[in-house]
Each structure stands twice: as structure tokens, then as C-alpha cells.
Amino acid sequence: MTPAEVPGQQCETALRADAERNRERIMAAARRLYATEGLGVSMASVAREAGVGKATLSRRFATREDLINAVFADRMDDYAAAIAEALADPDPWHGFTRYLESICAMQAADRGFAAVLAMSFPAAKDLEARRTESYRGFLKLIRRAKGTGHLRADFTSEDLVVLLMANAGVIAATGDDAPGTWRRLVGQMLRAFAVPGAPVPALPASPDSADLFRAMTRFGRLSEP
């Protein structure tokens, strides 16, 4: 009898496979919900979306931070890759502007990730380690961009945090009503960061007034107690 034919080992293998399937279902459900509804989704909602019990969810992911850490691991890889690409650009100013546009686009593509970049999760060790790595790269990018004479001397890394928080708010507020609004925000902020006369990407068009009004109305309803 081969090891695969031993009943006990067959049962153990089946349990491991079932546990892995449940983990993947949970992560897929959380990714869908976080992307469309943000990080405010409850663990109970994730369990329902995944079709598993709360106990099963808790066995796979003991805390909300554990789940967030797992769900956004690949997004943080993309985030780290973006700063590496920016640092590799032979034109540091171009690398700087493209980096800001890229990470804000990542936020726009996933409401959950928009919040992740604008918040801190001390208990999510791996996620925070990748964020710290990218932050150090951004400090280097700032120094290089300032060296071109195009980035304002008073720009600080905290300005990036403010931009990401503002962008997350705009994305949440405009939703599907005026989805391109974030591009206008980023375009205006790049102009605020640049010294007069510095080359900047073309300014995206303003959102349509009717679309923006619908977004304001919807966001007002969501904000009601």
C-alpha cells in the first residue's frame, strides 16, 4: 500500500485541500467586497459572501488585519514595483510625476486599496513592512526630483500621505457618478508640487457638473445618520 492509499493520510490531505479552498474563497470574497465597498465591510459579510461560517473564517484569519494583510499582499507588491520603476527613470522629475499618477490610479481601481494606502495597520506586519520599504524609496525619489529643480523645496513625504488621503476621499465620494474626478485632483496637486514653469502632465478635464452633482447628492445621503 502506498502512502497515498493510507486512509489516515488520505483524510489529512483532503482536509488540507478543503482548508486551502476555504482560504481562497474567503480571500476572493474579501477582495470583491473591499474593492467595491471599501474596508468598512464586516468580517460577517465576508463570511457570507464566501459561503463559509464565521468559525471557518476565524480559523483562517483570526483578525481583520490578518485578512487585509493577505488580501492586499499582491497590491503592495505592485506598490513597491511602482517606486522601483520611478527610481529607475533616467528623468527623476518624470519618475516622480508618473509615480504619483500610478499609485493614485491603483487607489481608483480598488476602493479597499485606496483606504489601505491612506491608513496604517500596525498589526499587519507584512503589509506595513512593504509600505516602509516603499516609503524609503519615495524619500530617495523626492531628493532626486528636487535635484532637477522642478519639485518645490518645501515638498515633504507627508504631502504624499495627504494626497493619498484626499484621493481616497474623492474616490469614495464620487463613486460611479463621476469616476474620473480623481484624475483632476492629481493633476492639480502636481501643479501645486511643481515650481513655476516646471513641466507637468496635461491637466485632465474637470468632471461634468451634472455627474458631480449626482455624486454630491449620493454622498450626502450616505453621510446621513
Rank of each mutant, 00 (worst) to 15 (best):
T97W: 13
Y135Q: 01
G180F: 12
A28P: 09
P7N: 00
L39P: 05
L15S: 05
D91Y: 00
G112A: 02
A55Y: 02
M43H: 06
A86K: 06
V46M: 03
A19I: 02
K146I: 14
R31T: 07
P179V: 11
V186S: 02
T174C: 02
P196V: 07
T148F: 09
S58V: 07
F121T: 03
K146H: 11
E65Y: 00
G197K: 15
T156H: 05
M165E: 06
A35S: 02
G197E: 14
E101P: 02
R25N: 11
I142R: 01
G40N: 09
M27K: 15
T13M: 10
P3Y: 12
A28V: 11
G180S: 07
W93K: 11
R32L: 15
T63F: 12
V52K: 11
Q188N: 04
M27E: 15
I142E: 13
A168L: 05
E85D: 05
S120L: 03
M119N: 05
A194F: 13
D126S: 13
E128Q: 12
R64A: 04
R75Y: 15
E224Y: 14
L100M: 02
F72M: 03
K125R: 09
P225I: 10
Y79H: 05
T56E: 07
V116W: 08
G51A: 12
T217K: 02
P92R: 14
E20L: 13
R111H: 03
T56M: 11
R48W: 11
P7S: 03
V116N: 05
C11S: 10
A62I: 05
M106G: 04
Y99K: 00
P204M: 09
S223V: 01
F113P: 06
Q9H: 09
M1W: 00
E20Q: 05
I171C: 03
K140C: 07
D176Q: 12
R136T: 04
T174Y: 01
R152A: 15
A192Q: 10
V162E: 11
P122S: 01
R218H: 14
P92K: 14
P225C: 14
R59S: 12
E12M: 04
F213M: 04
Q10T: 06
S120N: 07
R98L: 10
W93A: 08
V6H: 13
S209E: 12
G40L: 10
A88W: 00
R136Q: 08
I103P: 02
E158W: 08
E101D: 06
S223A: 15
F61E: 04
L203Q: 07
F219R: 01
D77Y: 08
